[in-house]
Every structure is written in structure tokens, then in C-alpha cells.
């Protein structure tokens, strides 16, 4: 194990930017590297991305390895995986950090199992064990009902991190670092599956993942009409409407609005949970919200254990009065 050294962050690129989650990876990676007395590296894969190296350095990297090739301009899982596999075998890092994104979700486990090591997905906390110097990987399990701390006994120790769970460093443009090119040397025979089309689905209004405010309803809303009242509040707050699983199962609202283990995992500034009891399956999708406000007629509902503010009452009476008063206050 001892010949593995260094912490490396796979920096995901979208458009012409490094994703915020990758900057968060560099932020926590910096801490881990410092505590091990090792270097922090970034790996960038794409086409025409050389100018992003400095961003990675400003965000904490000591060295940036760049695999820049026109054939890598768009994400292709098999090609990207083979590039990462080769880079990892060459660099022999002790720790590899990826984001828990739709790309990280598949690259991280495939890379780990291809290299014969293990991966811990969706970590919310990473630290070095003072005695063993191994990586303590904390992740939610059982839909957020519990957390588990894992230790990987093989190197590299691979993890993905949950969005907004770790802090990025304030970018420092004066930081210095080294930029190293790695040739892609793509071998066509590794490409077994291919992305042939990318479809962006327009959603009316604000996307739920990007919304600062989410107004969500549960089984107690009762029907599709009920959700219109939630929409009114969401519109007032320039937010999006979400739901727990039962309203989606009953077609009161499209599946794309579902928050939870079998839906979307979001972390808005404000989450307003209306007639949602707070099952673990739902909470795993919204427990990262900064401020949670709950309206529920059952004072014992689990949702109040997570809520910062609450009203115990029938939403049909609470919500119209709440929306009306808020409208007055906001326009005043």
C-alpha cells in the first residue's frame, strides 16, 4: 500500500466550467492532503480545457493533470473511464474523490471495481483516522435514517461526495501549481457503449434542483387541485413545487417533482413541507435543506424533528392565510 501517495480530485467539467461540486472536492481534498502531508492533484478530462487548469489550482490543487483531446469533448463513459484508469495506474494516488453526480455515480464504482479496490458513495464527511491514517468515509445509509463510517483497506480509496456537503476554498488566483499533460491514447476497442444523443428537457418555471425555495406537498394534499395552491406560494417565492412519493404515485403531480430516495435529492435554502409526514425515504431527498418549514396537522409527525419553523394545523386552512399574509408583507 505504501507506494500509493497523494489525494486526487476528478474535476467534472460542464460547458466551460469546473462544477461547484468539484471545487468542494478540492476543498476537502486540500484538508486531507495537508493532514497526510501529501499533495493534492486535480484530473481534468475533456476537449479544449487547458484554460481550466488555473481554476483548479486557485481552488487548492498543487498539480493538475490534464487529458485534453478533441475525442473527449463530450462525456462518453467508456472513454472517460479508460482515461481515468490509465491515469490512476500511472499516478497511484492514495485517495480519489469524485462528485456524486450522474457522471460520478457511474465512473466511481466502475473505476473502483476495475482497479480491484472499493468505493464509498455519497459521502457527507471525510477525515483521516489519526492512528491508521486511513480515510474515514461517512455516508448516509437507510435513506438518511442512519450514517455509516466506512474504511477501505485497499488503495486507492475511492469516494464520491454529496453536493454542498463540503466547503470549497475561496479561489485564490495567486496560487501556483504545476500543469501536466497526459496523452489520451484512446483505444477504440474499450468503447462498448456510446452516447448517441443528449436531450435537454425543458421544465416550466424553475428547475427543482436549482430552486432556492421548494414548496413540497405530501399525501395529505389529497388531489391535483391541492397542488395548485402550492404552486401559488412557489410562484410568490420564485421557487419550485416538489412532492413526496404518494402524490406522484397518484398522478397528482409529475414524477419529476418527486423528492426522496426514489426521486431527486436537493438542498435548497428553504424547503416548505406541507402535509408531509417525513418518512426516511422522503427525508433523504431534502434533509440537506438549509431551513425547513413544516405545516402538518400531526404534532408528532417526523417532519417536525427536521423543521426549524412549524405550524400544527390543517394545511387547507393554514396555507391560504400564509400565502396571503406573505404576499402582503413582500409587496409592502
Amino acid at each position: 500500500m505504501s507506494d500509493y501517495k497523494g489525494v486526487v480530485v476528478y474535476c467534472e467539467i460542464k460547458g466551460d466550467k469546473i462544477l461547484p461540486i468539484s471545487a468542494e472536492g478540492l476543498g476537502v481534498g486540500r484538508k486531507l492532503a495537508d493532514s497526510l502531508g501529501q499533495e493534492l492533484w486535480a484530473i481534468l478530462v475533456g476537449g479544449g480545457i487547458i484554460n481550466l487548469a488555473q481554476t483548479a489550482i486557485a481552488s487548492g490543487a498543487d498539480k493538475v493533470y490534464i487529458v485534453d483531446d478533441a475525442q473527449l469533448k463530450d462525456y462518453q463513459p467508456d472513454a472517460y473511464l479508460s482515461v481515468l484508469e490509465k491515469a490512476t495506474k500511472q499516478l497511484k494516488p492514495q485517495i480519489i474523490i469524485l462528485g456524486q453526480t450522474d457522471v460520478g455515480r457511474e465512473l466511481a464504482p466502475r473505476l473502483a471495481f476495475r482497479l480491484g479496490t472499493a468505493v464509498t458513495m455519497d459521502c457527507v464527511e471525510l477525515a483521516i483516522d489519526p492512528d491508521s491514517k486511513r480515510l474515514l468515509q461517512t455516508k448516509p445509509v437507510y435513506g438518511g435514517n442512519a450514517q455509516a463510517v466506512f474504511i477501505t483497506e485497499t488503495d486507492p480509496q475511492i469516494v464520491t461526495i454529496r453536493t454542498k456537503a463540503m466547503a470549497a476554498l475561496t479561489p485564490d488566483a495567486s496560487r501556483k501549481g504545476e500543469v501536466i499533460n497526459i496523452p489520451a491514447q484512446l483505444d477504440a476497442s474499450v468503447i462498448k457503449s456510446k452516447i448517441t444523443d443528449r436531450v435537454i428537457e425543458e421544465v416550466a418555471g424553475i428547475k427543482i434542483e436549482d430552486a432556492q425555495v421548494v414548496v413540497a406537498g405530501g399525501r395529505g394534499i389529497g388531489n391535483a387541485d391541492g397542488f395548485k395552491q402550492l404552486e401559488e406560494l412557489a410562484k410568490l417565492l420564485k421557487g419550485a413545487v416538489g412532492a413526496s412519493r404518494p402524490p406522484c404515485d397518484n398522478n397528482w403531480i409529475p414524477d419529476t417533482a418527486q423528492i426522496g430516495l426514489t426521486g431527486k435529492i436537493i438542498a435548497p435554502e428553504i424547503y416548505i413541507a406541507i402535509a408531509i409526514s417525513g418518512s426516511s425515504q422522503h427525508m433523504s431527498g431534502c434533509s440537506g435543506s438549509k431551513t425547513l418549514i413544516a405545516i402538518n396537522k400531526d404534532k408528532e409527525a417526523n417532519i417536525f424533528r427536521y423543521a426549524r419553523y412549524g405550524v400544527v394545523g390543517d394545511w387547507k386552512k393554514v396555507l391560504p392565510a400564509f400565502t396571503q399574509k406573505l404576499k402582503e408583507l413582500i409587496t409592502a
Binding site: A118, V141, F150, I151, R308, G310, A321
Partner: peptide, 28 residues
């Protein structure tokens, strides 16, 4: 290759501030 070091339930301190009022509308 991996072992679980600890499994625990994160503590959620009940710190919910409930709005006061005689009726649901007043609380709202």
C-alpha cells in the same frame, strides 16, 4: 475491501419553533 467502522443515528435536536395562535389562520 471495506469495513464498517460505525453505524449511528444522527441526532436531530428538536428545535422547531411552532407558530402561536388560536386558529390555524392566526398561526399561519
Amino acid at each position: 475491501r471495506t469495513r464498517i467502522n460505525k453505524l449511528f443515528q444522527p441526532v436531530h435536536e428538536a428545535k422547531c419553533e411552532f407558530a402561536a395562535g388560536e386558529t390555524p389562520e392566526e398561526m399561519a
